[in-house]
């Protein structure tokens, strides 16, 4: 496979920076907007990989709908920036960073050698044909081989619509439990 272009490297760095901002920022609004940045740069990266249809779906659905929904909800709830240090959280943070780092190291160790052998076997000089990546090939697959998952996803969407309507309509009774006591 061809060496990565400079544009792809810039996009990768941008996506990584935005992803780090999502996790590290204390202000949830900035986190949500960084998430939008990550998803958008990922869509652009798909364009450079010549997966035009997937890139368009990524930008329309992910960056256009899901992350805007996130920004909307964060602004609706008017969340305050979180406190930096909360007592008793240090073990969780250490555990989380260890889990992420060990996952990364293990996956990199197991995947990268396989990728190298891929590169030896690889004869494709680059560029997908229109037939392999276009909407036609994807939709033929979705309607033949992946028919059952496709239909189940439709059911899932229907169920989630119903769940959102139910959750949005009903007002839950106020809770008087351990949370109120903890606040004092």
């Amino acid at each position: 496979m061809a060496a990565p272009s400079v544009f792809q490297m810039i996009l990768c760095v941008l996506a990584l920076t935005c992803a780090l901002l999502v996790v590290l920022q204390r202000n949830p609004v900035i986190s949500a907007i960084s998430l939008l940045g990550t998803l958008f740069t990922t869509g652009l990266l798909y364009f450079t990989l010549e997966a035009y249809f997937v890139g368009a779906v990524q930008i329309l659905v992910y960056a256009g709908a899901i992350s805007v929904l996130f920004v909307f909800i964060v602004m609706l709830l008017d969340l305050k920036p979180t406190r930096v240090r909360v007592p008793g959280r240090a073990p969780t943070i250490v555990l989380g960073v260890t889990a992420g780092a060990s996952f990364f190291v293990l996956c990199a160790l197991s995947v990268l050698p396989v990728l190298k052998t891929f590169g030896l076997l690889d004869t494709m000089s680059g560029g997908l044909g229109e037939a392999a990546e276009g909407p036609l090939a994807i939709s033929v697959l979705l309607l033949s081989k992946y028919m059952l998952p496709f239909q189940v996803t439709a059911l899932l969407l229907l169920a989630s619509i119903m769940g959102v309507v139910v959750l949005g309509k009903r007002t839950l009774p106020p809770r008087v439990s351990s949370f109120e006591k903890r606040k004092d």
Binding site: L16, V22, T38, T92, G96, A99, G100, F103, F104, V111
Partner: peptide, 13 residues
């Protein structure tokens, strides 16, 4: 891989 690992760290911490 990096995005997935960053996601794990954020989800836990």
């Amino acid at each position: 891989l990096c995005l997935f690992s960053i996601g794990i760290v954020g989800f836990v911490t």
